[in-house]
């Protein structure tokens, strides 16, 4: 009786190990490409690309990662299911990033539109004023508070979550936000 089964299927030659052995030239080529790409991304970082620098850096990083995964980790020659596991993981990371970022972005847009900025308003309502910075940075805290004072802030106690109204108020909230962010 055939004794040897894998995945519920009989295996013809159980003693053979079907592993792909890449030639040295592959490894040398890959590490060479990785070094070149590292140099590229390093050099580009000195140029002022503005917001595009994130895109460029990420594209280069993805190319590098693909090289490592495909050749060093043998995914190109490996069981296709391992590739499925890997890509599936990336998709779930994408879901995690996508929905969370979507909320964060759309929340900002709506907060602007409705003149609510939850993060900072909540702190005002706690009755403690705007607590930013950290306990052991009294100067910064004083500085921020002074800026808020200068913009006529500190109107704590009002209910938040809608009904703030007023263009003035909006400008004020934005100024606070800016003051706090800097």
């Amino acid at each position: 009786m055939a004794k040897v089964f894998l995945n519920g299927q009989p295996v013809e030659h159980p003693h053979e190990v079907h592993e792909h052995i890449s030639p040295m030239s592959t490894y040398n080529g890959v590490i060479g490409a990785l070094f070149v790409l590292t140099g590229l991304t390093f050099a580009v970082s000195f140029a002022d690309l503005g917001p595009a620098s994130l895109t460029v850096a990420m594209v280069v990083a993805f190319i590098k990662a693909t090289l490592v995964v495909a050749y060093f980790m043998h995914l190109k020659y490996d069981d296709k299911f391992h590739l499925f596991v890997f890509l599936g993981t990336i998709i779930f990371v994408g879901i995690f990033f996508g929905f969370t970022m979507f909320d964060m972005k759309s929340r900002d847009a709506l907060n602007d539109e409705q003149e609510t900025f939850v993060r900072w308003k909540e702190q005002e309502n706690a009755g403690k004023g705007l607590v930013v910075g950290v306990d052991n940075v009294p100067e910064r805290r004083a500085k921020v508070l002074a800026e808020i004072e200068a913009h006529g802030g500190g109107h704590g106690g009002g209910e938040h979550g809608g009904g703030h109204g007023g263009g003035e108020h909006k400008a004020e909230a934005k100024a606070e936000h800016k003051a706090a962010a800097h």
Binding site: F92, I95, F99, F102, D103, S106, R107, A109, L110, V118, G161
Partner: peptide, 18 residues
């Protein structure tokens, strides 16, 4: 199950769109 978690955040200050 991985794309529905936001229903726990309906009244937590999540954006209405989300």
């Amino acid at each position: 199950s991985f794309v529905v978690w936001g229903h726990h955040l309906f009244v937590s200050g999540q954006s209405e769109l989300a």
